[in-house]
Amino acid sequence: MALDRAALLLLVLGLGLAGAQKTLEEVPLQPGFEARRVEGRWFTLRLAASHGDLVSPTDPLRLALHSIHVEDNGDVAFLLLWRGAGVCGGENVTVHPTELQGQYRGSFEGGRLRVRFVGTDYSSLILHVRFEDEDVTSLWVLLARGKLEDPQWLGKYLGFVGKFHLQEAPVFNVDGQCPPPR
């Protein structure tokens, strides 16, 4: 009886992991993606996540992607600025290319992350970030070089929000007045 129960739990876990992987495979990649063309300053226009507690409007922490930089070795570095409880700071997050063009992976304290450049015309950008720790969390971001939304890219982004049943969050762009990250 206990052996049957253990087998059932393994089956459920296996199906759950297969479902999580299928979701990642459903996320498209930009055909012909050129990392160097996304370098520079970006503004976050829209943000959505698969877990509502990550996008709570009552959370005092305000996080914003400031810019993207591509290293000579092909790594992509994201400069994130944050502000909360009277403190302002920055963090560099670097991800490494995978065998799939437009997909990158890296790690953070307690887990791994995968970044996919879903689509871009290099003026607008849809980015998918998958955090893998105790849970698997998807974060979708609509970015632009300026603060105006392009209706075509907004429509694409909202299509993903609906398809993946995401919860949107308020957006905060930090103006870069924080001290540089260490």
Rank of each mutant, 00 (worst) to 15 (best):
T94W: 07
F117A: 02
N73E: 03
K147D: 00
P31Y: 06
F160T: 15
Q21S: 05
L9D: 05
D75E: 14
P151E: 04
V129T: 11
R5L: 12
V174W: 06
A7I: 08
E39A: 07
L8D: 07
L113N: 00
V95Q: 15
Q167A: 15
G119K: 12
V70C: 03
A64N: 05
L63R: 07
E39Y: 06
S107K: 09
Q177I: 12
P97V: 07
P60C: 02
H165W: 11
G119Q: 13
H165V: 00
E109I: 10
R41C: 04
G159H: 15
A20V: 03
Q21A: 08
L142Q: 06
W42K: 00
L113R: 01
S124N: 12
D135P: 01
L10K: 09
L79T: 06
L142G: 03
C178F: 06
G106M: 06
R130F: 02
L158W: 09
Q177W: 11
F172H: 14
N73F: 04
V118L: 05
P31T: 08
G14W: 14
T23L: 08
M1P: 00
F164K: 11
D53N: 14
G86Q: 14
F33W: 03
E168F: 05
T120S: 01
F160W: 14
T120M: 02
D59Y: 09
V115I: 06
C88L: 10
R116Q: 09
C88I: 02
D175K: 11
E71D: 13
A85D: 12
G40F: 00
V70D: 00
R182N: 11
E34T: 03
L154W: 10
H66Q: 14
G86K: 15
V136T: 13
K163E: 03
Q21W: 13
V93F: 04
V141I: 10
G19Q: 05
L9I: 14
P28F: 05
F164S: 04
G106T: 07
L139A: 06
K147R: 15
W140P: 03
R37H: 02
L63C: 09
L10T: 12
G84D: 07
D72P: 11
E99R: 12
